[in-house]
Design a protein around this nucleic acid. Structure first.
Lengths: 198, 198
DNA sequence: CCCCCTTTAGTCAGGGCTGACTATCCAGCA
DNA sequence: TGCTGGATAGTCAGCCCTGACTAAAGGGGG
């Protein structure tokens, strides 16, 4: 199927995408990532940025173009995307969009162990989650509204829209789950099977 | 807030949970993980299992109980959970359930770069995704039905139910997105802004 | 003119994770 | 008896990633 990428870190895709626009030095890349809020959906730290660029260089997807030293700042290497890099962006993007891949949300692991908690405790923590989710949903909505008010086109907000859809689905799921856990039969059967164990 | 765990890998939580039941050697743990299908929501390989158990040992959450050598097999170390380990399971589980944490689905990254693809190409790959999602949904439903037919209680299928909820939400999102991309205005504005660039 | 805080820019040690490898036992078959 | 394939069980080199650190420039207050 999908051969493994030479530089699998998603941050690399974002870097390549920016370099499609114009050559840049690492710090500038980092700044744009933050500024445009694209770092909200990518695990980004400055150190991993440098690492990833090094990897991209080794893989031949970018090349060091020149080393600028304006006045006295530490020297900054400007990187440009290569032809192989352009190809990689396109190919990677297509494959990410076309094939859903197994991701491993922490919540799923926790759910698979839900039976370890006494029913009332489970209900309590899930209520807290539900409230937190409501907060996230609010935040996301606000971010989107603000962006739209600034004239940002919908296509550049599509990842927020997706995040929102997932958050809302999770919220609905949690609400229903809480209801199921509150049924007296559940408390009863939990007592019977787990009562002494935990 | 949430202090970082001594052994942050979710596989560690699953290991501790099984050891709550009874002491076991690593290979046995791995077998049960696979058998019960719990490995579907955890990144599991044998090597990481050994690594994680080593880490749990260093952290004091498990202890090597005895080294069995039946007949001629390579010796197997049986591990038992400690009091600190019990506490860790409980605390970690509560915190995973109560606090949604930022996860970084690859699809979100790809979506944030969707504007790089010509509209018809975007539609094509998203249609493929939609079909793949339908397949996953089918699979998950079948797994759940089979388990229920075997008499498995709903509480032990709750993580599948969650996976299903997310898959369905994603599918709905993708369907709507395809519709938006098919609007003639989008093709037009894409031509205008990106036309020459890509 | 000195001090201190913030911003800019980058490095690196240390530990985590994975793919690839090793080694033994047993069953079946020729 | 000897060979082969599969299940059992574990190890390890090497890359990847992160948190913590370094360091210089600019700016503003005193």
């Amino acid at each position: 199927m999908e051969r493994r990428r030479r530089v699998p870190n998603p941050l690399a895709l974002a870097v390549l995408a920016w370099l499609l626009w114009e050559p840049m030095h690492p710090y500038e890349l980092g700044r744009r990532l933050k500024q445009t809020g694209k770092d909200r959906h990518i695990r980004y730290t400055r150190s991993s940025l440098y690492m990833v660029i090094e990897q991209l260089d080794r893989a031949g997807f970018v090349t060091a173009q020149e080393t600028v030293r304006d006045s006295a700042r530490p020297e900054r290497t400007v990187y440009a995307i290569t032809e192989a890099g352009r190809h990689e962006v396109h190919d990677w993007l297509r494959s990410l969009l076309a094939q859903p891949r197994a991701e491993y949300p922490h919540f799923a692991v926790a759910l698979s162990l839900l039976s370890l908690l006494p029913p009332d405790e489970a209900v309590e923590v899930l209520r807290r989650r539900s409230a937190a989710l409501a907060g996230r949903i609010e935040e996301t909505r606000t971010t989107m509204d603000e962006a739209r008010a600034d004239g940002v086109a919908w296509i550049f907000l599509v990842e927020e829209q997706y995040a929102l859809a997932l958050l809302e689905a999770e919220r609905r799921f949690v609400t229903e789950l809480i209801e199921s856990l509150k049924q007296p039969d559940y408390a009863k059967s939990w007592q019977e099977t787990m009562g002494g164990r935990v």
